[in-house]
Each structure stands twice: as structure tokens, then as C-alpha cells.
Amino acid sequence: MRDISAGEAKVGDIVAEPLVNSQGRVLLPKGANLSAAVLSRLQGWGVHELKIEGDAAAAIDENSGSTLEEELEIRFSDWADDQIMVQIKHIALGHQRRRGQVSRS
């Protein structure tokens, strides 16, 4: 489990602890898979931080030496400020990571 900011959250991340708003209402249960729709709402819900599954070392391992992910970053590098493009990149990244897990297992 690791803490990340709402901005770092990506499609496919799994919520490690229930996400609760200031009134104590559960916005997302533990184990929920973050979708693009949910990601686009995080800000509106006032969520700044959340806990997701996996440890920091795994995150670094996932990113290191991953040429496909680097290619994806280059492809989207002009659109870091465009909300739609950022979401599309997150979805594509989620697919890429899932495929990576399948091929590793």
C-alpha cells in the first residue's frame, strides 16, 4: 500500500483503503478499480490524497526500463495540460501495465 496524490492516480490503480469524504460518506470502497470516469471526479469530490495497492518499490520497478511506457510519455508530451489527453494517456497506460502483468506471469 502507498500514499499518492490525486494527480498521480491512474486508471487501473486499486484503492487500498475506503475513500471517505469530510462527512464520512464512502466515495469508493476498498478494492475499487479506478476508472477514467472516477479519476475525472476526484477533484470535484475534494480528494487530494488516497491510498492504493502496491508498494513504492513496485511502482519504480514498473516504470524502470519500460520502453513502451517511455514511448507513451513521449507521444503525449505536448499535452500535459490537456485534461482529455491526460485521461486517454492514463487509460492506455493502464492497458499497457495490465498486458505487462499478463506477459510477466
Binding site: 470516469a37 507521444r75 503525449f76 482529455i84
Partner: peptide
């Protein structure tokens, strides 16, 4: 190597949201 920007108006014209894109 790059990707052109997706025009928000294209999504609007089709009545699509990011959920549909996903």
C-alpha cells in the same frame, strides 16, 4: 512519434464523455 490533440468539440458533437472513451 506524437499524438494530435483530441478536440473536445468532437466528443461534444457525438455526445460522448470520457466514460465512453474508456
Amino acid at each position: 512519434q506524437k499524438i494530435p490533440r483530441l478536440e473536445a468539440q468532437a466528443l461534444d458533437t457525438l455526445g460522448m464523455g470520457l466514460e465512453d472513451v474508456e
